[in-house]
Simulated scan of single mutants.
Amino acid sequence: MPAKSKAQQKAAGAALSAKRGETPKMDLKGASKSMADSMSEEELEDLAETKRKSLPEKKG
């Protein structure tokens, strides 16, 4: 499933980094923290690899 906004794509990237152990999980805030807990690495990859060029800054 592709990301629906740049903010969602960015949060997924941060969560994926923490899930892989590249970033401390305690550094996560907000959506990225809950994404890291509730989503699999594969789901996070799908969101994080979305091209940002055509995405709105925030959904809504």
Rank of each mutant, 00 (worst) to 15 (best):
E42M: 11
R20F: 08
A7H: 08
L16N: 10
E42Q: 13
T50R: 04
T23K: 13
R52P: 11
P24T: 09
M1F: 04
K58F: 10
A3L: 06
L16K: 06
T23P: 02
S40N: 01
M39F: 12
L28K: 00
E45Q: 14
D27R: 09
A48V: 07
K10W: 13
D27V: 10
S32D: 06
L47Q: 00
S17Y: 07
A14Q: 14
K19N: 09
S32Q: 06
S54C: 12
S17R: 12
K25W: 08
G21Q: 03
R52W: 12
G21N: 03
K19I: 14
T50L: 03
A3H: 05
D46Q: 12
K10L: 15
D37Y: 11
L28S: 00
M1R: 09
G30E: 05
A12M: 02
Q8K: 03
A11S: 13
K19F: 05
Q9H: 04
A48Q: 06
M35V: 03
Q9F: 02
L55S: 00
A3Q: 04
G13C: 14
L44C: 04
A48Y: 05
G21H: 03
A12W: 00
P56L: 03
M39W: 04
A14P: 01
D37M: 08
M35D: 05
E43K: 09
